[in-house]
Structure formats: C-alpha cells, structure tokens
Amino acid sequence: MFPNEFQGFIARVTERIASRPLDANLEAWLNAEYPAGSAEYTELANAIRAGVEEGWLADREAGGIRYGRIFKALPDTHGFSVDVVRMSDIAGPHHVHPNGEIDLIVPLTEGATFDGHPAGWCVYGPGSAHRPTVAGGSALVLYLLPEGAIEFTKHAASAT
C-alpha cells in the first residue's frame, strides 16, 4: 500500500459525497453504502491499518494520540483533507468543525467506540464541536474535513 493508492480509495468515497450536506442523512447513507463489515469498508479499513503499520499514516504523536494529515484538501480528494488518528481510551483536544467532519471508525479492539459510535461512519455538521473520545480500547479514525477546516479550542477537559 502506498499513499497514492490510499488517495484513490479515499477519492472513490469523496467523489460520491462532495456535493452532499454534512448531516444525519449523509451519516445514514454512508452507513448504508459502506457499512462496517462490507467489502468496501473492509478494504478501506485494511488500507488505513496498513498505512499506520507502514508509518505513513498517523506518523506523529502527542499526548498519547498518534495522528497525521496525509492529504490537504485537494481536487483529487474533492476538497476534503484526510487525517488519521489512533487513540486508546482517551479524549483528544476539543475542536470546532467550521464546515463539518466525516469520520470513519475502525476499532482495533472489539467493541471500541468513537464518541459512542461503533465501527462505521459518523458525521458532524458545520459549526459542530467535540472532544473526540475513544472508549473501550483502541481505534483508528479517518477524518474527512471539507476544505481542511478545523479550529482547535482551549475548552476545559470536561467539554464535549
């Protein structure tokens, strides 16, 4: 697996979602089109795992979280930036999604969740904010951010 192959996997998804609003309907559609356990989900999850194992995804670490932006918002990814994080029973830094955020959750520990969501997709709308939290073990999370927009805040540790 190489970054350009990975970009091709991502582009197949982003091409289908680029013109859609980031909302509950998109989350339901992603979970129906690419459900956990499907061939497409498994192919993407395996590509994410391979990239992390090979060291070109989530290649930085801070505060017990491995993370990294593999692609800025590009025409090839239909205007989405692509980040991958690896988290284990931890809450990350609070941030705002000016244009929304789409997350693909790949548990590494059976039953691990991301913000309470199991394996699959989670969508946050424009202007939403959270403190990303993995519970019940370890998970990889792929973040798709329209225009790469994210704003880290200085919220208290209890913020959600």
Rank of each mutant, 00 (worst) to 15 (best):
P35D: 05
V85P: 00
P98C: 11
F80M: 01
R86F: 07
Y67V: 01
G8E: 08
T42E: 15
R69C: 11
V106H: 10
A91K: 05
G100D: 11
D103R: 05
T42K: 10
A62M: 10
S38D: 01
A112W: 02
I65T: 05
A62W: 03
Y67G: 02
D23L: 08
P118W: 00
D76I: 04
R60L: 07
T133D: 03
E53F: 09
F71V: 04
I48L: 12
V85D: 08
L22G: 02
N31S: 04
L30M: 10
G125F: 02
L22R: 15
E5D: 15
F6Y: 15
S81C: 07
E33I: 00
Y34C: 02
P126L: 09
V123E: 03
P93I: 00
I105N: 10
R12P: 02
G116A: 12
A91R: 06
R20S: 06
G68N: 11
L44D: 00
V82K: 05
I70R: 12
R131H: 13
A119V: 09
A39N: 13
C122V: 11
A32R: 13
G125S: 14
N99Q: 15
Y124A: 11
W121D: 10
R131E: 13
E27G: 13
Y67R: 08
G55H: 06
D76Y: 02
F71R: 09
A135H: 05
V82S: 10
L30C: 05
F114K: 06
G63Q: 09
E15K: 13
E40K: 06
G137T: 04
G111V: 07
D83K: 12
A36F: 02
C122A: 14
I17E: 11
E61V: 11
L44W: 00
P35A: 10
N25F: 06
W56R: 08
D89Q: 04
A73N: 03
A24C: 00
V13N: 03
P118M: 02
G68T: 03
N4D: 14
I48Q: 04
L104C: 14
A18T: 13
E110I: 07
G51W: 08
N46K: 15
L108N: 13
I17R: 10
A28W: 00
H130Y: 07
I102P: 03
L74K: 07
A73P: 04
E101N: 09
E33L: 01
F71N: 11
K72T: 08
K72C: 00
E33F: 03
L26E: 09
N4Q: 13
G111I: 08
L44K: 00
P126I: 07
E40G: 04
H78G: 08
V134G: 01
E54Q: 15
N46L: 14
N99P: 00
V84M: 10
